[in-house]
Each structure stands twice: as structure tokens, then as C-alpha cells.
Amino acid sequence: MLGLTVETLASESKLPVSTIEALETGDGSADMRALATVRSVLENHGVLFLAGGSDGVGGPGIRFKQWSENDGIRPENLNATNDD
């Protein structure tokens, strides 16, 4: 979504590449502090984390905090014919 490499995310979060990879694979070896650190870096890049709603609409996920009309198709408008 952001085009960040594992190495860039590791550098910006000051975490080892192996910790970033563990978070990506969900193997359970990463601690909550590392997860919070990576989340903070992603939020600084404009990512907004969404909690799952109790009203049955949508679920947990992410989106950009700001969306410009020049940024292409909004995520909610993606479908099988325009998702490249």
C-alpha cells in the first residue's frame, strides 16, 4: 500500500528486519512493543487503522488518512474489473 520495503520499515522503526518479517508472517515471535512501534511508523506515513465495528458494517482494516482525487480509485470502489 505504501511501497515501503522491509528494510525501510526496519530502519524507520529501529527494529531488526527479522522482527518486521515475524510481524508480516504472524508467527507469534514479535512482541506487542514491536507491533506498536511499526503501527506508529505506518501512522506517520498516513495509514489509519480501523477497528471492527459492532454494528455489522465492515470490519477491521486500514486506509489512508487523506485521500486525494488524484490518488486513483478509492478502496471502497475497487472490484474485480478495476483492481490492478
Rank of each mutant, 00 (worst) to 15 (best):
A22C: 02
R74S: 12
G56S: 05
I62K: 04
G28K: 07
S11H: 15
L48Y: 03
L9T: 05
E43N: 12
L4S: 11
A30Q: 05
L48T: 09
L48N: 09
S11V: 09
F49E: 06
G46V: 06
L23S: 02
L78S: 03
N79D: 14
A30E: 09
E76L: 11
G3S: 02
W67I: 09
N44P: 00
E69S: 09
G3I: 07
L23P: 04
V47Y: 01
R63Y: 01
D27R: 08
T5L: 08
G58I: 04
F64P: 00
G26I: 10
L15F: 04
R63E: 13
S13K: 08
D27Q: 06
N77H: 12
T81C: 00
L15Y: 03
L50C: 12
S68T: 14
H45K: 15
W67H: 12
N82Y: 05
R74P: 08
N79I: 03
G26M: 04
R39A: 15
T37L: 13
A36Q: 14
G28A: 08
E69V: 10
A34R: 04
E76P: 00
D27P: 00
E43F: 09
E43I: 12
A34H: 01
G61I: 01
M1T: 11
L35G: 11
E69H: 00
A30I: 05
E43P: 00
V57D: 12
T19R: 05
L78K: 06
L4R: 08
G72K: 01
S54Y: 08
T37F: 01
K14A: 15
G72S: 03
H45Y: 14
L35W: 09
E43Y: 07
L50T: 10
A34C: 04
P60V: 05
P75Q: 02
D31Y: 06
E21P: 00
D84K: 10
P60K: 06
N70H: 10
V6E: 13
S54D: 13
N79R: 03
T5M: 07
L78D: 04
G26Y: 06
G46F: 02
G61P: 05
T81Q: 09
T37K: 13
E24L: 14
W67C: 06
P75R: 06
G53M: 07
V41L: 13
S40K: 15
D83H: 10
I73D: 01
L42I: 11
W67N: 05
A10I: 09
G72M: 02
V6S: 07
M1D: 12
P75Y: 00
E21G: 02
L9A: 07
G26F: 10
E12V: 02
E7P: 00
T8D: 15
R63H: 01
A10C: 10
E43H: 09
V57M: 11
D83P: 00
R74M: 14
F49M: 09
L4Q: 08
A80L: 14
L23C: 12
D83K: 09
G56K: 00
H45N: 14
L78A: 05
T5Y: 01
N82G: 04
P60D: 02
L48A: 15
K65Q: 15
G52Q: 12
F49K: 07
R33K: 13
N82C: 05
S11W: 11
I73V: 15
A22L: 01
D55W: 02
K65F: 10
T81M: 07
G3E: 10
G56V: 02
L48V: 11
G59S: 13
R39F: 06
V38R: 03
P60L: 03
